[in-house]
């Protein structure tokens, strides 16, 4: 039971193959222009002659046999960067559009729409036209609209990139909830989105997958140089305790929560390696977080060296490595400001 994708779009120089298990979220992570959206268009059936797409035991597209189910026959919903709500319909009618297209009566479709608007917290806006809604509100309605068709697969294309900084965390949290049990392919150039929303991550560079694996592994120990440069991000999972994360080893990592966290609930901390500094002793001064660690590996990339430890990775200059005399197995102290530690529900 899975979505199998083997897509080649020569004119865009895109060639990728991956499988998404049922209920799983796979993030396609890569810079803009890497061909990610083309992959989604191929899965959705919006571009023809593009390889093979299978969903469970059903062939949606197979270039070799000429099979090509049209978009509306695939049961795959697409959530795009812009909400793309139909401007001539109210929020409620936008959500009811899919159910109506699937043959529900006007009344049933309305009931479905009301339920999904409630799910995304937009019940009060059912009668508003899209241009009367903020960007974040539009994206909420778009999410409800996509889910109201009960799609077998959800394709999500840069869902937060068009939003302002205030609404992005809320929509990310909403997506985290609704994607938890859905088979999803998520396209993003935001490492944070991949870190928080995806079970697995495929890093795409110039139309090819250069790394594919569990989110924590791909982000924490990228296998490609490109992945390291692009995707390098510390992701630590644990339990929320006030404005901090209790790590599995019991130590606390203080940070800032963008959405309120409930004590004792699962949470994740995201820290950029460039925000982590390496010391031989506990430093004087202000950092809230000062953690003893052991150097696991030293990986040069670009003009920096990534110091991997058993807790967090840090990017420091080669000169600093030499000055500290770092080597594998060395005990070190990592420090990171609380303002550089982003806490999220997980």
């Amino acid at each position: 039971m899975s979505l199998e994708v083997d897509v080649a779009v020569p004119e865009r120089d895109v060639e990728v193959a991956f499988t998404v298990e049922t209920g799983e979220t796979l993030a396609l992570l890569g810079p803009n222009g890497a061909g990610k959206s083309t992959v989604l268009a191929a899965i959705a059936g919006l571009i023809a002659r593009s390889g093979t797409v299978r969903l469970d035991d059903m062939t949606l597209a197979d270039e070799s046999t000429g099979t090509h189910l049209r978009p509306h026959e695939r049961g795959i919903a697409l959530l795009a960067q812009e909400a793309r709500l139909f401007p001539h319909l109210t929020a409620g009618d936008n959500v009811a559009f899919g159910p109506r297209a699937h043959g529900q009566s006007r009344r049933d479709a309305h009931t479905t729409a009301v339920r999904w608007l409630e799910e995304v917290g937009m019940t009060a806006y059912a009668d508003r036209r899209p241009h009367e809604l903020s960007g974040g509100q539009q994206q909420r309605v778009a999410i409800a609209r996509a889910l109201a068709t009960e799609p077998r697969v959800l394709l999500v294309d840069e869902p937060l990139s068009a939003l302002d900084v205030e609404s992005a965390p809320e929509i990310r949290d909403l997506l985290r909830r609704v994607l938890a049990t859905r088979t999803t392919v998520l396209v993003t150039h935001e490492v944070l989105d991949a870190a928080l929303l995806a079970d697995r991550v495929a890093v795409i560079d110039a139309g090819r997958i250069v790394d594919l694996g569990d989110t924590a592994r791909v982000l924490g120990r990228p296998r490609s140089d490109f992945g390291a440069r692009f995707a390098g991000l510390n992701l630590v999972r644990g339990v929320a305790v006030g404005e901090a994360l209790r790590m599995p080893d019991g130590r606390l990592l203080h940070g800032l929560a963008e959405v309120p966290l409930t004590d004792g609930s699962p949470a994740a901390a995201v820290v950029a390696p460039s925000a982590v500094s390496v010391h031989l002793d506990h430093p004087h001064g202000s950092p809230r977080n000062s953690l003893a660690a052991t150097v696991v590996d030293l990986e040069p990339h670009a003009h920096l060296v990534r110091v991997r430890t058993d807790v967090l990775s840090a990017d420091i200059t080669a000169a600093a490595v030499a000055e500290l005399g770092l080597a594998r197995g060395n005990p070190v102290v990592l420090s990171v400001k609380a303002t550089e530690v982003h806490l999220h529900p997980a």
Partner: peptide
């Protein structure tokens, strides 16, 4: 075709897309 594409992925056939999205827009 942006709205037409969205309508198709929501399960609307070509005729539905034409009458409910293309023409109204």
């Amino acid at each position: 075709t942006r709205y037409e594409d969205v309508a198709a992925t929501l399960g609307a056939g070509p005729t539905t897309v034409f009458t409910r999205v293309t023409l109204p827009l």
